[in-house]
Design a protein around this nucleic acid. Structure first.
Length: 142
DNA sequence: GCCAACGTTGGC
DNA sequence: GCCAACGTTGGC
């Protein structure tokens, strides 16, 4: 099973919103082909990190892919076709403590993380090794 | 098809 | 608030 990282500005849609939802929420609004392609690769049941950008800059929890890829309900048709798609995700559990970007940058084994090397990609793959390291840093079992 | 100009994201 | 990095747009 692959692992992922979803990035959001907490002021727009934060971890508290995701938890309060108590169920799947459409991860709409992605307007980047690479990020969309990553979502196309997702399987229902796969897990991902929930990352707060800009303000906190930290991984704060774990989410689960709840639906297959589907059209983004907020996307406008382009030449009569919806090109933007997304999945729905639901909160699984909160980290015992947030894992900050600063910590990630200096942690051995995380040098190759997309988060470190391409900070602008909003939906990213996470390797198995990276997944395990960050889970432990966050105080949860991988 | 190239590339300059522009807009956006997100770390600092 | 600034600006680097990146992606997209549009003129040629």
């Amino acid at each position: 099973m692959a692992h992922w990282l979803f990035k959001s500005e907490p002021d727009t849609w934060g971890w508290h919103d995701q938890v309060a939802k108590k169920g799947p929420e459409e991860w709409h609004g992605v307007r980047n082909y690479q990020a969309r392609n990553n979502m196309r690769l997702m399987q229902v049941g796969e897990l991902g990190f929930f990352y707060h950008s800009v303000k906190e800059k930290a991984v704060v929890g774990i989410v689960r892919v709840a639906t297959p890829i589907h059209p983004d309900s907020t996307a406008e048709p382009k030449n009569g076709k919806i090109v933007w798609e997304c999945v729905d995700i639901e909160a699984v559990r909160s980290f015992e403590r947030p894992v900050t970007l600063d910590e990630i940058k200096v942690e051995p084994g995380l040098e190759q993380m997309v988060l470190v090397n391409n900070s602008r990609l909003s939906v990213q793959p996470v390797s198995e090794a990276e997944w395990a390291i960050i889970c432990r840093m966050g105080g949860v079992e991988p």
